[in-house]
């Protein structure tokens, strides 16, 4: 992802002034970012290699460096291992599901519909803003084993239902669907904005060439949407690797830790005052997201963003 912009400047003075211009544009951001984001991140990274606990809060310097032992201990912790597996399943199933649904909706809303357009946009965005408490009540009603809408519908077509949220085999899939439902609107908004950046004349030219809908989608929309897709993929991955709220309100990580996520586990460790271990878990999450993001960059890069 190096210079996609204008060709490298000619003279030395030219490149110096380019550099100055560049830095002028990023300076306000960079200053705030370094102080308020990068600084605390570095400090927490430092915490992850010490034995800092809640009892050290008053005097955080009086702790012992323990090297990587916080990290090594994690892998001996069955909860951490279980949470890692759950999180992996969640991300691998949830991210593509959410993106596919969001893209479908965005394409539908962008296909020249004029009537009800605002209504649809607002409607599909509503789960993003609806209080998690209301969401949890309604979803619990849907998934209730005796009185739930889902089991009733399954019963109509002759299929047996399940005790969704209390069965270790079904709780995680149920939460994955619920999370995709809840986050679809977020990705949709970004896709909608991204779709507007595709020059209309590309489509017009294609239409003259007689390209069908599918061909236009495949050869114009998808390639032109790549930077947006990359963004959505990375942001959704980050969000899903850190998924927390859904198990927190729906299952408290149960039954039998089947919906415990790494972020939930970190939150618990933090609450226990186990700051060293919590930070270490946080940075394991970090490494996972970095690796996944590199994969996304590889998969979705195009000639603009190489």
């Amino acid at each position: 992802m190096a210079a996609g912009a204008s060709s490298p400047g000619g003279s030395r003075a030219g490149s110096l002034s380019r550099a100055l211009t560049g830095w002028t544009f990023v300076l306000p951001f960079a200053a705030l970012f370094l102080v308020f984001t990068a600084g605390p991140v570095l400090a927490s990274l430092a915490m992850s290699v010490t034995d800092i606990r809640g009892a050290d809060l008053l005097d955080p310097f009086a702790v012992n460096p323990v090297g990587l032992s916080n990290y090594l201990d994690l892998f001996a912790d069955p909860k951490f291992v279980q949470a890692s597996v759950n999180t992996a399943i969640f991300v691998v199933a949830g991210v593509p599901l959410t993106m596919a649904l969001a893209l479908l909706v965005a394409l539908g809303l962008n296909s020249g519909l004029v009537r009800f357009r605002t209504l649809y946009r607002v409607g599909y965005y509503l789960p993003v803003v609806t209080s998690i408490v209301a969401i949890s009540v309604v979803w619990r009603f849907l998934l209730h084993p005796d009185t739930g809408l889902l089991n009733a519908s399954l019963g109509l077509v002759g299929a047996g239902g399940a005790n969704w949220l209390n069965d270790p085999a079904f709780a995680l899939p149920a939460l994955i669907v619920m999370t995709a439902w809840r986050n679809l609107g977020f990705a949709m908004v970004i896709f909608l904005a991204g779709l507007q950046a595709i020059p209309q004349d590309l489509y017009e030219a294609a239409e003259i060439d007689g390209a069908r809908r599918w061909a236009r989608l495949r050869h114009i929309t998808v390639p032109m949407l790549r930077p947006t897709m990359l963004f959505v993929a990375v942001i959704t991955t980050i969000g899903y690797v850190q998924y927390f709220e859904e198990p927190f309100v729906m299952t408290q990580g149960g039954p039998l830790d089947s919906t415990l996520s790494l972020a939930y586990h970190t939150y618990n460790q933090f609450g226990f005052g186990d700051y060293g271990a919590a930070s270490a878990t946080g940075y394991v999450l970090f490494v996972v997201v970095v690796l996944l993001s590199i994969a996304w960059f590889r998969l979705l890069r195009n000639n603009v963003d190489r």
């Binding site: 380019r18 560049g22 990068a38 915490m47 999450l285």
Partner: peptide, 29 residues
Amino acid sequence: AKLPFPGRRVLFGMVLGTIMVPNIVTIVP
């Protein structure tokens, strides 16, 4: 995106990196 300046890749890397750190671990610092 559009202005080549030294440190660009480092800064972008840091930007991406920090999004990926869970908020809870940085709250005390």
